[in-house]
């Protein structure tokens, strides 16, 4: 049961964030760009839990975004699945302490996400707006600012000792 909860809570979190994100976006009037809360969670999930979790939760989070946002289904799912996998490969090599590295990793992931989106849309023929550097910059900074919180949530979830762990340590 504990194992199921441990595996499934990111999905609950992703669902809550994917539902909340479009509602908050109505109220957020940043210049040209908006934070991608699901992307922030996926970066944290991938770097804390590894490539498999990054790919699966990335795909699930992206699919929820596709479904809730009026996109072609599969665009965000594919992008975030691949991005989660690639970031997860660096999970052992990146120090996750502090604020600077989560910020940097999330800003970089936002840029890579934008590049991959353009490539995938061109590949499959989905019309995509031109976007702007200013909007991308605003989105990257907003995502980066939220990253330390998301990393804290995932690190807490990943390292919380279970009852069996505690028993094993005792004896």
């Amino acid at each position: 049961m504990r194992r199921v909860v441990r595996m499934a809570w990111p999905l609950g979190l992703l669902l809550a964030v994917a539902l909340l994100e479009p509602v908050l976006t109505v109220r957020l009037r940043l210049v040209d760009g908006r934070p991608d809360l699901v992307l922030v969670l996926i970066v944290a999930c991938a770097l804390v839990r590894g490539p498999e979790a990054g790919a699966v939760w990335g795909f699930a989070g992206g699919f929820l975004q596709d479904l809730l946002s009026g996109h072609a289904l599969g665009l965000e799912a594919g992008l975030k699945g691949v991005l989660g996998f690639l970031l997860g490969l660096a999970s052992g090599a990146v120090l996750l302490e502090g604020i600077l590295l989560p910020f940097g990793a999330t800003v970089a992931a936002t840029g890579i996400h934008a590049l991959l989106a353009r490539g995938l849309a061109e590949l499959v023929g989905v019309p995509l707006g031109p976007g702007s550097w200013q909007g991308l910059g605003v989105a990257a900074c907003a995502n980066g600012a939220l990253a330390p919180l998301a990393f804290r949530v995932f690190r807490f979830g990943a390292h919380r000792p279970s009852v069996t762990d505690a028993a094993a340590r005792r004896g």
Binding site: M7, G50, P51, V56, A72, L75, A77, G78, L79, V126
Partner: peptide, 28 residues
């Protein structure tokens, strides 16, 4: 969690990419 060896990892990634492309091309 789901896959552990590099081969299974690659298989998982390929399956997800394939699923995404299948979904996208189905709507074109």
């Amino acid at each position: 969690m789901i896959a552990t060896t590099p081969r299974r990892r690659a298989g998982l990634l390929a399956a997800l990419v394939f699923a995404a492309i299948l979904l996208l091309t189905g709507q074109l």
